[in-house]
Design a protein around this nucleic acid. Structure first.
Lengths: 84, 84
DNA sequence: CACCATTATCCTATAATGGGATAATCCGCA
DNA sequence: TGCGGATTATCCCATTATAGGATAATGGTG
């Protein structure tokens, strides 16, 4: 796992996206299909092998039938990002 | 510029972050200092040489004294992301 | 155990990134 | 106009991350 993926925030994000997917009863393959990407893409961002940039995040939220803003808010709430 | 940075959404994001920074009267160097990164980091994400992942985006929003959720919402509003 | 669905990992060519140094640009001012 | 400082963009290239098909591992059911 790339070192940049070990931050608590990144891990929270991963957990959040996994929760969301399961809550919708979707498999990685289904999400991947919606995103027009291979299943390994989903496996990787969920597993912390890959980061999601902002635009990708929006797309993933869409595939998960979720509101990106709300997901982001939830993430921030769960683990406030401190630059200090 | 990496090819993944040419999407309209990415460019909208860049513009948005530049606007926000200028609206606050901040220089790249000041933002960079807040982020504890070199000025080139800011120059790159503003110029499209580098993408911001979700966690970085939250940090940048903070450095810009902006609400990440609102910024994300604005981005989505300006250029709806369609996975289709 | 056998089977099928689901998820994780391998592999490696290719692409992206870090960040100090340096170059370009911009701009007010005399 | 031309200097000087401030601001932003670009270079360089070693290091790190990513793509994505193939395959392995894991899970759950009967």
């Amino acid at each position: 796992m790339p070192k940049s993926l070990r931050s608590p925030q990144q891990q929270q994000l991963q957990s959040l996206l996994i929760e969301l997917r399961k809550a919708k009863g979707l498999t990685q393959t289904e999400v991947a299909t919606r995103l027009r990407r291979p299943q390994s893409f989903v496996a990787k961002y969920e597993g912390g092998e890959r980061r999601l940039d902002v635009v990708e995040f929006i797309e993933v939220a869409q595939a998960l039938e979720a509101d990106a803003c709300l997901v982001l808010g939830e993430l921030i709430q769960r683990s406030p990002v401190t630059t200090d």
